[in-house]
Design a protein around this nucleic acid. Structure first.
Lengths: 230, 230
DNA sequence: AGATGTCTACTTATCGGACAAGTCAATTAT
DNA sequence: ATAATTGACTTGTCCGATAAGTAGACATCT
């Protein structure tokens, strides 16, 4: 790479690095080339490489770790991990969790009803089927996983990655701490029915019905938990 | 300036330069110190100075002109251009963030209206005052911090720690470099008014009014951002 | 065998000096 | 007076050296 007049070299390097990441299929968390490797690869001094990498770091494309190397970054990942850790360590109550989920999930279901495509519909339908199948096999502990699968499929179909990652963080922290509490007597059967109602509303592209169905689902689940806890 | 363990020197330089700009009263278009001057002034090698200056350039604090020097930039103008670029390059956009915030914040404001105690009210009132004070001083870049302060105080008064930490995670996930772009022309004045409306509704323990005020606030902010981006 | 410390290679972080190249104004030649 | 030149100052890039964090291999001790 030779300097082009009037255009800063390090700016060209920035573009070259983005291109490298895309074209060579680097993804989330992968270790990138070291500064020395990049020096040879792009035939540019290490100073220019460093400037470019540093800028890619502040713009959230990569993260640089002293002594380890350059890694492809996930913008929200760091914060979400800290969030999850906090959720687990602080044993936040299941009621807090539901209060938040009641804010998010119904609205998300409404958005999903508008934006879900065929693939999303298939995914949610599969989650419903899996839940029912596992229930019929009597594998109660595994049910929570498929409950999450449905809610995550729903979140994904909103086409909002931020929302999706957020839900993933919350659900994963939930399954690690409160597995047993969620399966109160008779809850699984109700969940199967309620998920189907939500699914149908989304499939019918009816936002209001989807929102209401999701709210009812969470309200019912919360009521059952309260009842079982006395 | 001596190196501090575990903290990158160039990061410290960034803060030092921001401090220099503030404390020595540099303003829009002024010629800043040259790299050599900064080297002597901060007792740091030119490489580190360059890294820091380069980052301040991409975040819109200064502009660097070959052969001429470093100049204090117009934050708004520069950043709005860069912000557009950033939105294009990053898949998770500010719009995704707002879509999620629109799900959470209004409901949270409703809960806050019910559960906020005296201390919470004081905290929110302080956030409103701080925002207005900083605005009157013309320190635009610092406004976002006090905007977040208000929303976090609101979240905290829900007494739901999960919700609070969630909000904290989301606000911090907004890339630090581009936050001032959120303050489009005329937005600050509106924010002051809108925050007051939300605050009053919460203080009056009126959940529905609080919810509506928050929804309006976010809708308006989003509309302004869309408008400023064309 | 298992725990512990040391060595080594590789990585990023910082430094200092060198030269290229753009800018501007004072000086000089015409 | 005008044009060309020079020189000082600026950022842009390169190079080589050293510091410091990391991880795995290896040897040592218990």
């Amino acid at each position: 790479m030779k300097p082009l007049k009037t255009v800063r070299l390090s700016d060209q390097v920035i573009e070259a690095l983005k291109e490298l990441i895309d074209s060579e299929g680097f993804s989330l968390g992968d270790k990138f080339y070291s500064e020395n490797e990049l020096t040879k690869k792009l035939d540019v001094s290490r100073s220019s490489i460093r400037e470019a990498v540093r800028i890619l770091e502040v713009t959230g494309v990569v993260t640089v770790k002293h002594g380890k190397g350059i890694f492809i970054a996930d913008p929200m990942k760091k914060e979400l991990e800290a969030f999850k850790e906090w959720l687990i360590n602080n044993e936040t109550s299941i009621f807090e969790h539901f209060e938040v989920r009641l804010m998010i999930d119904p609205k998300a279901a409404g958005v999903a009803a508008v934006k879900a495509d065929h693939e999303d519909i298939m995914h949610m339908e599969k989650a419903c089927r899996d839940f029912e199948a596992v229930y019929n096999e009597g594998k109660t502990p595994a049910l929570i996983k498929h409950d999450e699968e449905f809610h995550l499929a729903m979140a994904k179909s909103t086409k909002n990655r931020t929302l999706y990652y957020l839900m993933k963080t919350m659900t994963s922290s939930l399954s690690e701490g409160w597995v047993t509490s969620l399966h109160t007597p008779g809850r699984s059967e109700k969940t199967i029915k309620e998920h189907k109602v939500i699914f149908q509303a989304i499939k019918n592209k009816d936002p209001k019905a989807a929102e209401k169905a999701m709210r009812d689902h969470l309200d019912n689940a919360l009521a059952d938990i309260r009842a079982s806890l006395g």
